[in-house]
């Protein structure tokens, strides 16, 4: 079970070195680039730990804008006037291979959705966006399960997005 998260920090260096997701890009990023981007506030990384303090996964987020097709804008009820919309880019998302298929990814993604909905209230955010290798069927299946849809097909990466809905009136009242 996921117990807590901690922002990227050198104090977790040993655990980060042992992190193996099965994807060299994901493992290389957390070891070589994440720290610098995090310190510069150019992209922020969260590390997730279970009840025994094992590093089970991480994600890195940065704000972005995204050009949406007319069809997507209509489906997502974004109106037809504005083509470019604010979004949250999931730059990297990785689960340690020993902890896959235990619901940790879903848990982390729900935290990202929660963050994005808060951004939507404060600064505007209409979707989550990420790039996934076309042949990474497991990752694509996971994102589709989380209701992401493919908005752009390219080689070697497809672009997927999840519409972020604004809070309902009831939710906003609860927050006040």
């Amino acid at each position: 079970m996921i117990a807590y998260y901690d922002p990227f920090s050198d104090k977790h260096r040993k655990k980060i070195r042992r992190f193996r997701s099965g994807d060299d890009l994901v493992d290389g990023f957390i070891n070589e680039e994440a720290g610098e981007l995090h310190d510069l506030c150019a992209a922020r990384t969260r590390l997730y730990f279970d009840t025994e303090d094992n590093l089970v996964g991480y994600f890195t987020l940065m704000p972005t804008t995204i050009k949406l097709s007319e069809q997507t804008r209509i489906q997502w009820e974004l109106g037809t006037r504005r083509i470019i919309h604010p979004a949250l880019h999931i730059l990297y998302f990785g689960i340690h291979e020993e902890y896959k298929l235990r619901g940790y990814g879903r848990h982390m993604m729900r935290d990202i959705i929660h963050m994005a909905r808060n951004f939507a209230v404060d600064i505007g955010c209409r979707c989550l966006v990420l790039e996934v290798k076309r042949d990474n069927n497991d990752a694509i299946a996971f994102y589709e399960k989380m209701e992401f849809v493919t908005i752009e097909e390219d080689e070697p990466y497809n672009k997927m997005a999840l519409r972020i809905a604004p809070y309902t009136v009831e939710e906003l009242e609860l927050m006040e």
């Binding site: 807590y4 729900r110 935290d111 959705i113 209701e147 999840l162 809905a165 604004p166």
Partner: peptide, 26 residues
């Protein structure tokens, strides 16, 4: 204003209302 705030989110299906954000490390 009311109608815009009550636009039905399409993530309702995947969002459990018992959801609690993960706490930050102490």
């Amino acid at each position: 204003k009311f109608l815009e705030a009550t636009e039905l989110p399409n993530i309702v299906k995947s969002v459990d209302h018992t959801y609690k954000p993960t706490p930050r490390a102490k």
